[in-house]
Amino acid sequence: MKFISWNVNGIRACLTKGFLDYFNEVDADFFCIQETKCQDGQVQLELDGYHQFWNYAQKKGYSGTAIFTKHQPNHVKYGVGDEEEEQEGRIITLEYNDFYLVNVYTPNSQRDLARLPYRLNWEEKLANYLISLNQQKPVVYCGDLNVAHEEIDLKNAKANMGNSGFTVEEREKMSRLLSSGFVDSFRYLNPTKTDSYTWWSYMNKVRERNIGWRIDYYIVSEQLKDQIEEVDIHSNIYGSDHCPILLKLDLNNRKLNNN
């Protein structure tokens, strides 16, 4: 099974920058996007063979997530039940017989860390939700998680210590989740690989010089780790300040749905 995750930083803009070319070429079973920045009815995608699930933010031009999949889920859930969080359209969960797929766009703590308390509370609720799902069946958790977990996950770690996305508190939240029965699929296969990033600032020549951060992830339940076949960062794909990431799982022995 092939999974793709991509923060498109506005699906309407990304559609003018080759989104559909990449979508058709990669031919994923599950294609998750974040930061759609659109409202219901503003984008009509004709994706043959795919079911579409959108979670729109109430605020126009803000946040939002979507999943396009070849496999009809048994159940779809938007958010985790928190009214404030659901207004921002940040979480979609698809349930299949033997696993959950959770697509997430984590709130940014903002440059002055004004939203850090909100972010940490949000992370706590999400972690509890993921752990509860994992107690029922394995989880594939993906998205723009807005944190570089370790120093190896960004170019200039020392200069960014304490900045949004690299605070001690945000990194600890990731560590706690991973210690609760989850695996960072990229690091599982590439424990020491450097210069592998998924986001770059729009500042001049930053992406060309690969001064970036790895803040987009596929995190899976520990019981799925031996079924990870491939993880890749498609840094050659433009159209956003993020690039797509790929996960291949051997799910041949797992049923997707009741059909």
Rank of each mutant, 00 (worst) to 15 (best):
I4M: 04
I4G: 02
N7T: 03
N7L: 09
V8G: 00
G10P: 13
A13Q: 12
L20W: 05
L20K: 08
D21C: 07
N24S: 06
A28N: 04
A28W: 00
D29F: 01
D29Q: 00
F31C: 12
Q42W: 12
V43G: 08
L45N: 08
L45R: 09
E46Q: 14
E46Y: 10
D48L: 13
H51M: 01
H51F: 13
Q52P: 07
Q52F: 05
F53I: 15
F53A: 06
N55D: 10
Q58T: 12
K60M: 09
K60I: 06
G61D: 07
A66V: 14
I67M: 06
F68V: 06
F68C: 02
K70V: 10
H71E: 15
Q72A: 15
P73R: 04
N74V: 08
H75A: 12
H75G: 01
H75E: 13
H75M: 13
V76I: 15
V76R: 00
Y78C: 01
G79R: 08
G81W: 11
E83Q: 11
E84H: 05
E85I: 14
Q87W: 12
Q87T: 15
E88D: 11
E88L: 12
T93I: 06
L94N: 08
Y96V: 06
D98A: 02
L101A: 03
N103Q: 09
Y105A: 00
T106A: 13
P107I: 01
N108Q: 08
S109Y: 03
S109Q: 00
R111C: 04
R111L: 13
L113V: 07
P117V: 06
P117Q: 02
Y118M: 07
L120S: 08
E123S: 07
E124A: 13
K125V: 10
A127M: 14
A127K: 15
N128K: 14
Y129E: 14
L130V: 09
I131Y: 02
I131N: 06
I131A: 03
K137G: 04
P138S: 01
P138H: 00
V140C: 04
C142Y: 02
C142Q: 01
L145N: 04
N146G: 07
N146A: 09
H149M: 02
E151G: 11
E151D: 15
I152A: 07
I152F: 05
D153F: 08
L154M: 08
K155T: 05
N156H: 13
A157W: 15
G162I: 08
N163S: 06
S164V: 11
S164D: 11
F166N: 11
T167H: 08
E172S: 09
E172L: 14
S175C: 04
R176F: 04
L177N: 10
S179R: 14
S179F: 07
G181V: 05
V183L: 10
D184M: 05
D184K: 12
S185Q: 06
L189M: 15
T192P: 08
D195C: 07
S196Y: 03
Y197L: 05
V206H: 03
R209F: 15
N210D: 14
N210W: 08
G212Q: 12
G212H: 10
Y217N: 09
I219E: 09
L224H: 00
K225T: 13
K225Q: 15
Q227T: 06
E230A: 01
V231K: 03
D232M: 02
H234R: 14
S235Y: 03
I237P: 00
G239W: 08
S240E: 10
H242V: 02
I245W: 12
L249T: 02
L251V: 05
R254P: 00
K255C: 14
L256V: 14
